[in-house]
Design a protein around this nucleic acid. Sequence first.
DNA 1: ATGATATTGCAAATAACTTGCAAAGACATA
DNA 2: TATGTCTTTGCAAGTTATTTGCAATATCAT
Lengths: 143, 143
Amino acid sequence: MINKFSLEEILKNKGYKLTQQRKVIIDVLGNSNGPHTANEIYSLVNDKNSGINFSTIYRNLELLVRLGIVRKLNLSNGYNHFELTGEKHHHHVICNKCGEVKEIDICPFMDMDERDKLEEIDFQPTEHKFEIYGLCSRCRNKE
Amino acid sequence: MINKFSLEEILKNKGYKLTQQRKVIIDVLGNSNGPHTANEIYSLVNDKNSGINFSTIYRNLELLVRLGIVRKLNLSNGYNHFELTGEKHHHHVICNKCGEVKEIDICPFMDMDERDKLEEIDFQPTEHKFEIYGLCSRCRNKE
DNA sequence: ATGATATTGCAAATAACTTGCAAAGACATA
DNA sequence: TATGTCTTTGCAAGTTATTTGCAATATCAT
Ligand SMILES: [Mn+2]
Ligand SMILES: [Mn+2]
Ligand SMILES: [Zn+2]
Ligand SMILES: [Zn+2]
């Protein structure tokens, strides 16, 4: 979980300012269990705060992604989701019915065999994505 | 590679018709090495054929995805890509610079440990995504 | 060849996201 | 605390991938 101090430090280091809007966006993401769409973040932000504009949300999410504070997930349901990067590398399972997203700490990329394969094709990896889609327990039990 | 007969069969089985447009779209995908965006498919299709409309491309890609003939990839570069499902299960490496997409036959999901984890959280998987992003050999050598 | 039904092309509508610009805010400095 | 510089915001308009309604057309079983 990112705290006020490290956030302020990271921003100022690069000449960015710690605005109210940025604080609220980070706060909302920090108090969330899973990742959220820009729409959801907009709602959450405007619940606890005065009106922050959509373009401000988007611009800041993009900035925070560039700074490594936020991760952007292109989920197959068609919506981009955002979450705090956090300290531990992880991936997600996504319910096709209700859209719920759960974290899993499995990472297939740490497997040695796979890295070898990449050297074969001379590909230099920077990031990777692993997602499992299906039905969560609640949705499965509903008929 | 899907042939004329199985395609016709699959379509007619469900009351769909084998139109010229569908033949050309499948043909283009079949003659491609990697997955393509709707835009690319539109160009490829209209090279070898008279004008097929964009909405026809989209409607048919969606249908073919529903029928399991085509797979839709939501790549992190922001563009949806489409490819024939093919016979062998596989995943992709994507170059962040030039956008090239290569197939890899590694599948991390076949790993037993991972499936066990899913049972723990009571999640019934239907499909999964594994993609590696980075720099291809050509782009890495260019400065 | 005919008729029922699915499909196409076209143009307009969505919806997510981006951008230009003037007004407002942050913050280093005095 | 007041000032000035530079960043950021809100707003409105623009962009772009994708979807949709509908009348005209193609497919296919008979
Ligand atoms: Mn997460
Ligand atoms: Mn492929
Ligand atoms: Zn990983
Ligand atoms: Zn797999």
